[in-house]
């Protein structure tokens, strides 16, 4: 009888652990599904914009400059992916696949934005191509990410395209080659608009000095304490 009680307590405890494991797993699965839906939405939006662009040949630039395309959706997607990566690990196959898809969407958005800015002279976007690694070989990447996140929140018009340098994706590798991002010079690395690559961590003040155009952007109502 006594032995049965020891066993019963063990079974109940193990069951509680198993339930906790199951619930946590289900919530992670829901997060992944959520990201997938968001990616599909962004994908459709980009396709729609491209189609619109192709159909009209030129765009109503006034409308476009008022509506800075997909940056909000991409930012939200980036935050969600970051959480999924934290929970499931950066080597999780599902996370890697989602990151690849996200990177492709970013590249498409980047290309579309460049194309629009060439045709619409009034549309002068400010964007940063940011390259990081979270394989443990970039101790400053987290801080650099914090600075860029803060800038993005402060200046909603600023577009930040962040890419995992170590992600094995041919389109990304092409972008890295085209923008001459040299891994040997160290990460984090970033390029502002069409400028040459800048390497190493830069704090908020340094970034604001590096991108004087930021002053032309409207700031958000981000509250400071």
């Amino acid at each position: 009888m006594q032995g049965q009680k020891y066993l019963l307590a063990f079974v109940i405890t193990a069951a509680i652990f198993a339930t906790a494991f199951y619930i946590a797993g289900r919530l992670d699965a829901r997060r992944i599904a959520d990201i997938r839906v968001a990616q599909e939405q962004v994908s459709v939006d980009i396709l729609s914009l491209e189609t619109q662009f192709d159909l009209l040949g030129s765009l109503d630039c006034l409308t476009l400059s008022d509506n800075p395309v997909l940056s909000e959706e991409l930012n939200s997607l980036a935050n969600r992916l970051s959480i999924a990566e934290q929970n499931l690990g950066n080597d999780n196959a599902e996370v890697v696949l989602l990151k690849k898809k996200y990177s492709l969407l970013e590249i498409k958005d980047y290309l579309l934005m460049r194309e629009i800015s060439q045709k619409c002279t009034k549309f002068k976007p400010i964007y940063i191509l940011y390259f990081y690694s979270n394989n443990g070989d970039c101790p400053d990447c987290r801080r650099m990410g914090d600075v860029l996140t803060y800038l993005r929140q402060t200046y909603p018009g600023l577009r930040v395209y962040s890419f995992d340098y170590r992600l094995d994706l041919s389109a990304l590798n092409t972008l890295i080659t085209l923008r001459k991002i040299d891994n040997e010079k160290g990460l984090p690395a970033f390029a502002v608009n069409n400028g040459r690559p800048i390497y190493g961590f830069k704090n908020l003040q340094e970034m604001e000095t590096l991108i004087p155009e930021l002053k032309t952007l409207a700031t958000s109502t981000t509250e400071t304490l």
């Binding site: 509680i16 652990f17 339930t19 906790a20 494991f21 619930i23 946590a24 919530l27 992670d28 997060r31 959520d34 939200s76 935050n79 969600r80 959480i83 929970n87 987290r142 801080r143 914090d146 600075v147 803060y150 929140q153 961590f201 704090n203 908020l204 003040q205 981000t222 509250e223 400071t224 304490l225």
Partner: peptide, 30 residues
């Protein structure tokens, strides 16, 4: 981080209150 980044203290993004960003790992439930 605050010293290095120069980011002033600020309120978190309201979007972070979404369930998606709440830590729901196994340890929390246990």
């Amino acid at each position: 981080d605050t010293t290095a980044t120069g980011i002033p203290p600020h309120l978190p993004d309201p979007a972070a209150l979404n369930w998606f960003y709440i830590n729901t790992d196994m340890m929390l439930f246990i």
